[in-house]
Design a protein around this nucleic acid. Structure first.
Lengths: 129, 129, 129, 129
DNA sequence: GTGGTCTAGACCACA
DNA sequence: GTGGTCTAGACCACA
């Protein structure tokens, strides 16, 4: 988060596309990603951009590179990483709320967006939007 | 958002401190901020670092600079800028939810964090967006 | 020009609104503008913002401040100022063309936009758009 | 655009020099720019000044930075970014015309400048936007 | 006084 | 090697 991104760089867009696919299940643990060069061709990006995205995803423990074999989706270990990740997300929520207040967005609106993003079946009593 | 911030730079920390104060009402529209040099003394930072923070806040339309006069909290025009800001925040929510799923954080947990960050008294009477 | 403005500051917006009114004849030479404070109230802006806009317009010889009397639209002297102004506009054209090439905008498109902005009656043989 | 630039700062001059080279094809997508330090030596500037220029060009999506690897000319994606860029350029044209009217510059003069800036050979075969 | 630009140079993480 | 951050401090135009 840090600052409001107006022009999200290409490598971040690619990171989020991959993370979304992991979140939605389109990509699952152990699956092999295209190589940096292949992905660059597929997406029409500079190989450096793809490398930067993969590097970022590796730092975030989303993917894993095995030298000579390729890049793979990591299974979420649920053990060590999470403490820091949870605190990070909590912090991101605080920051979003600060922005939301500036934009006169109600907390209800944020709740709606969250429920929508979580998708059906994961919320019990709530509906709306 | 995008990448997990580990060592947030000093200028970003200062940006967020000021944004928090605007969000909480501690600083309100038209109010003058300490000059770059004053703030540098107060915060124990180099004037250049403060200037970088102020510059960033100006880009984000949080403050407004009048060379030779000072730096002022900007009134939120609530008209044009906001559409893009709202879309940005919506996008941030989507991204936080993706992260939250990876960390096995429930939507209820996010709701709680949001309500806490919004603070007391803003939960019932808030205007719908 | 200098750099592509993504978030045009409020004071520039005000400057352009006033310049447009001068260009269209809605404001004519000698006419009195509202004082800084009046304009601030009218436009819902901080007085500093209006002062910055007026200052900028004075630098560009669009308006003129007479101490104790007010601020007035200047008549365009057409003598000294113009040489530098013409060179500036020529430079701006060069810069716009650089940007236009980056955006794959054809020179024909620029010609059309210019003719449209000049308005009817000021072009002889051209039409379109 | 907006304010008449009298003393364009060094970092903006460098930005425009690079943008011109991209527009003319002297620099093409994926090409590596000299490092911040190299460029500083070449141009006789301080590394910080070069870094400021590069940072600005990255914000404008002209170049792309991979920390530890270098800075590269970015390929113009031609998809999303452009819509805003096109609107920005259209707005700049409107602003130039307002200035041109004030300076009593004919629309024909502007057309000539544009054709000259586009260069030879691009006038007939150009694709319509 | 104010912010804006610029130089000089240190230190960092990362490749 | 690379860019990013930060300090220290000079000089400028402008108010």
């Amino acid at each position: 988060m840090a600052q409001i991104q107006r022009n999200q760089p290409l490598y971040e867009k690619l990171m989020w596309r991959i993370k979304s696919q992991v979140a939605s299940g389109a990509l699952s643990a152990g699956e092999k990603l295209p190589s940096v060069r292949e992905m660059a061709l597929i997406e029409g990006l500079n190989p450096n951009t793809v490398a930067k995205a993969y590097k970022g995803l590796e730092t975030q423990n989303v993917i894993e590179t095995v030298a000579g074999k390729g890049t793979f989706i990591r299974l979420n270990d649920d053990n060590i990483v999470d403490e820091r990740l949870i605190e990070t997300i909590h912090q991101q929520i605080r920051e979003v709320v600060i922005e939301a207040k500036r934009a006169s967005i109600s907390s209800q609106q944020l709740h709606d967006w969250i429920d929508f993003a979580y998708g059906p079946g994961e919320k019990d009593g709530e509906e709306k939007l």
